[in-house]
């Protein structure tokens, strides 16, 4: 899955990126995380609050930084395939 973290470098954006990585690791899902800082590109997703999370070109989160566990659940709901080895807590 292709995950993008939209943000313009504030601390919340960095936290979201870190937790998204942790969440992917927890799930054991292969995925790449890209950071999007270009305003034009951020705006093209129609988000008005940052940081935002985009999974496979769909905005799933904007303006808040959930805990890693919640992020994992959100990402899991977006995952096309069931994870091969769901890592527990």
């Amino acid at each position: 899955m292709k995950v993008k973290v939209l943000g313009i470098g504030c601390s919340n954006c960095q936290t979201l990126e870190k937790r998204a990585r942790e969440a992917l690791d927890q799930l054991g899902v292969a995925g790449e995380i890209a950071k999007v800082t270009d305003l034009n590109e951020i705006a093209s997703y129609g988000v008005m609050r940052l940081p935002a999370l985009v999974v496979d070109e769909r905005v799933i989160l904007a303006g808040r930084v959930p805990k890693t566990e919640e992020l994992a659940a959100l990402l899991l709901a977006e995952a096309p395939l069931a994870p091969s080895q769901p890592a527990g807590e």
Partner: peptide
């Protein structure tokens, strides 16, 4: 209110 890091995308969202 919005955190200051949202001021810019909010501005773009409104004006556009």
């Amino acid at each position: 209110p919005f955190c200051s890091c949202s001021a810019v995308p909010m501005f773009i969202g409104f004006v556009s």
